[in-house]
């Protein structure tokens, strides 16, 4: 299965191999996204699982023109948003929130490979307000354009650009030695 269109076709017909291929293609990308959104490995694991379960539930009803990546990232982001909302009414989660996000856990290999700048960048991203963080992560991890992010998050392109600009400004203050995409323009 070479592209997302073929994967969507396979999923629509209930082909388990299409789900396998989709999982291989997006598992790590989704995990990286939700892990950096919330900073909690267990939560990220749970949200990735729920994202693929939702995909499986909707597989047969996907439209042929479904934008698979957009669908998956939108589901993952909405699940995370929903978790955030519920955490305000869950006492145990309030304690977690009071303590702040736990540091993103990396594999020993990743820890070795990650430069000090990357580690500082990860921390600075985690400190951003959630609306800015999700937009910035979609740019950094998925290289999405503001118009695509707007469609995915149900926002106006203007709102996305505004959040992105604020995120960049905050990162410039936190990491003055970091060159951000779009700075040169």
């Amino acid at each position: 299965m070479s592209d997302d269109g073929e994967l969507v076709e396979g999923l629509r017909s209930g082909d388990p191999e299409a789900l396998d291929a989709c999982y291989e293609r997006y598992r790590a990308r989704l995990y990286g996204f939700v892990l950096r959104l919330g900073g909690q490995p267990e939560l990220a694991e749970e949200l990735v699982q729920e994202t693929f379960v939702r995909l499986a539930r909707h597989a047969l009803r996907l439209r042929p023109d479904t934008h698979l990546r957009g669908f998956l990232f939108a589901v993952a982001r909405n699940l995370w948003r929903s978790h955030l909302r519920w955490s305000w009414v869950d006492g145990t989660k309030l304690v977690e929130l009071a303590l702040g996000p736990t540091p993103v856990a990396a594999s020993p290999h990743a820890e070795l490979a990650a430069s000090e700048l990357e580690a500082r960048f990860e921390s600075a991203v985690l400190a951003l307000p959630a609306p800015q963080r999700e937009v910035l992560l979609l740019v950094v991890l998925e290289h999405l354009e503001p118009s695509e992010i707007a469609r995915l998050l149900g926002l106006s392109a203007q709102a996305v650009r505004q959040r992105l600009a604020r995120a960049r400004a905050a990162l410039r203050i936190a990491l003055p030695d970091l060159a951000l995409e779009g700075d040169a323009a």
Partner: peptide
């Protein structure tokens, strides 16, 4: 723009998550 290293599900979770999704599809 800085490149962030790829993060993946822990190996113990990979099969479990896929099995759960496959069960739902079936």
């Amino acid at each position: 723009m800085i490149h962030l290293p790829e993060r993946d599900l822990p190996p113990r979770a990979r099969d479990r998550v896929l099995r759960r999704a496959q069960r739902e599809l079936r």
